[in-house]
Structures are given as structure tokens and as C-alpha cells.
Amino acid sequence: MYQTVGHDAVHLVAEAMQLPLYRRVITGLPLNQAAEYGDRMPSPNFSAPTTLTAGSPERDETEDLYELLMMVKRNHPDVEAVSVGAILSNYQRVRVEHV
């Protein structure tokens, strides 16, 4: 799901704009490749996913985006939106909306 083209220069854009940059190594796999991704309404008993470690069950790559956004929210609680370049990809859009 995640593109890597140009990622090696994005820190320069953040620097030039004097904005913080958050990155995360993707450890999950594209397990759920269906057109829909999960429930639209979170369960009342939902807990944040844990980090994938050796010997643990596999997780979907979308959970890495969730964890990254949780880190951003902890450091910037006023953040209310996410902008992505998934203009023509319903696959990516659905997953970002789900997170």
C-alpha cells in the first residue's frame, strides 16, 4: 500500500517548511487486500494494536499507519485531519479513512 518514491527527500521538504516529520518502518504485511477494510465503527472494547515482534501473529500494514498517527496525535493533540496522495487508489483511500 505504501509508496516509497521520493521518500528520501521528504525530510528536506519538512525542514524547508519548518514542520515536524514523523516516519515509521512498516512491519505489517498486506494481509487484507479486499475492497473494504474492517468495520467503519470501532468496537467499544478496541485497544491499540501492539508492535509486531518475532513470533507474534502477522498484522496488516494498515496498523502501522494507525500507530504512526497515534504518535502524531500524542505529540500534536490539535491535529484533526490527514492528507494523502492516494488520489486514484480506492484501496489506499479506504484504508486511510478506516484509520
Results as ranks from 00 to 15, higher is better:
20 P>M: 07
39 D>Q: 11
3 Q>K: 06
23 R>C: 11
10 V>T: 12
55 G>T: 10
35 A>N: 06
71 M>H: 14
72 V>D: 07
17 M>K: 05
7 H>A: 04
62 T>D: 01
64 D>I: 02
63 E>R: 04
48 A>P: 11
26 I>M: 13
92 Q>L: 10
5 V>E: 10
41 M>E: 10
57 P>T: 12
94 V>H: 07
42 P>T: 01
57 P>N: 15
34 A>D: 11
20 P>T: 05
75 N>T: 15
42 P>Y: 03
21 L>R: 14
19 L>I: 04
33 Q>R: 13
61 E>P: 00
47 S>Y: 07
3 Q>R: 04
94 V>C: 03
41 M>Y: 06
97 E>P: 00
94 V>S: 08
82 V>R: 02
5 V>S: 14
91 Y>M: 00
31 L>W: 01
80 E>V: 11
3 Q>H: 04
56 S>Y: 07
47 S>F: 05
32 N>I: 05
12 L>W: 13
75 N>V: 15
75 N>E: 15
27 T>E: 13
97 E>K: 09
78 D>G: 12
53 T>K: 10
87 I>R: 02
4 T>Q: 08
43 S>D: 05
33 Q>E: 08
23 R>Q: 15
47 S>V: 10
90 N>C: 04
86 A>R: 02
25 V>I: 09
80 E>R: 13
99 V>E: 13
33 Q>H: 01
89 S>T: 09
32 N>S: 07
93 R>L: 15
59 R>W: 00
18 Q>D: 06
18 Q>M: 04
5 V>K: 15
21 L>D: 07
2 Y>E: 01
46 F>M: 09
95 R>A: 02
63 E>Y: 10
84 V>L: 08
22 Y>G: 13
85 G>I: 09
57 P>A: 13
27 T>S: 10
75 N>S: 14
16 A>Y: 13
62 T>L: 00
85 G>N: 11
68 L>K: 06
80 E>L: 12
27 T>P: 01
5 V>A: 13
